[in-house]
């Protein structure tokens, strides 16, 4: 049985922008009509949009919130609740029982995640803050290089961002699956998003590269006519075009 099965899925971390519906009143019969009014004024604004229910501002006991009725009402308004954020542990447990799992905001513990001002007596210990650094928006760690990257050297930050505190000299090559930051002069080649991450960017305080590439889209020096050469610069991918913008 050496036959390899076809790949049926891939598990990857992803980050999404979601709207948060912060409840100020626990009663669905009060919230839903007001929400319905607002959405009638902007038809289609949030049709079938996934939404997170924010519990952090709610001053109510967990049993006061009828999550099932709330979910049903939201569905009727063509809004799809997918989880909760914030609130006490007991509150989150109630929501989970109704099918709304707790979500954690990127960036770790923020105000929404702190337990409500008056936690109920039966509160379970709050979830521990995520261990270790948590990089906003990327979830990647970073490789830090403090020596100059010299001609003929090649540095690859696999699955990570790359931070070079010095210079990347002509003839040197820096590669990262994530973003590349160069706090000296970038005079060699820089390849970001090496695993086809089109969101990866390249930052350099002195932008003077031989070649720039993001997710396989590249430009050699000759094609960098419009780039702010010699200045602090950010490079990103816009469709299939590399865009250069001054930094700061």
């Amino acid at each position: 049985m050496s036959q390899t099965l076809p790949e049926t899925f891939r598990l990857r971390a992803g980050n999404f922008n979601l709207l948060v519906l912060r409840l100020l009143d626990p009663r669905p019969e009060a919230v839903l009509p007001a929400l319905g009014d607002q959405f009638r004024r902007a038809p289609g604004f949030l049709r079938f949009a996934p939404i997170v229910i924010g519990l952090g501002d709610l001053e109510a006991a967990p049993e006061e919130v009828d999550f099932r009725a709330l979910i049903e009402g939201l569905h009727a308004l063509e809004i799809v609740p997918i989880g909760t954020s914030g609130g006490s542990a007991a509150m989150r447990k109630e929501a989970l029982a109704a099918g709304l799992p707790p979500l954690r905001a990127v960036g770790g513990k923020d105000a929404e995640e702190l337990p409500a001002a008056a936690p109920p007596p039966a509160a379970e210990p709050t979830e521990p803050a995520p261990a270790g650094p948590d990089f906003q928006g990327s979830g990647r760690s970073a490789m830090v290089v403090t020596e100059p990257v010299r001609s003929g050297q090649r540095i690859y930050a696999q699955g990570a961002d790359l931070i070079v505190t010095g210079t990347v000299n002509p003839g040197a090559e820096v590669i990262a699956d994530g973003n590349i930051h160069v706090y000296g002069a970038l005079r060699g080649r820089a390849v970001a998003g090496a695993q086809d991450d089109t969101e990866a960017r390249i930052f350099a305080l002195h932008f003077d590269p031989e070649l720039i590439a993001i997710a396989g889209f590249y430009a050699v020096r000759e094609q960098l006519g419009d780039a702010p050469i010699g200045r602090p610069t950010q490079v990103r991918l816009d469709g299939e075009e590399l865009r250069f913008a001054p930094l700061g």
């Binding site: 003929g152 000299n169 002509p170």
Partner: peptide, 13 residues
């Protein structure tokens, strides 16, 4: 200068 840069990299590796 380029070759010296190269040799510095070799020295450190």
């Amino acid at each position: 200068v380029r070759d010296s840069d190269r040799i510095l990299g070799v020295l450190q590796s």
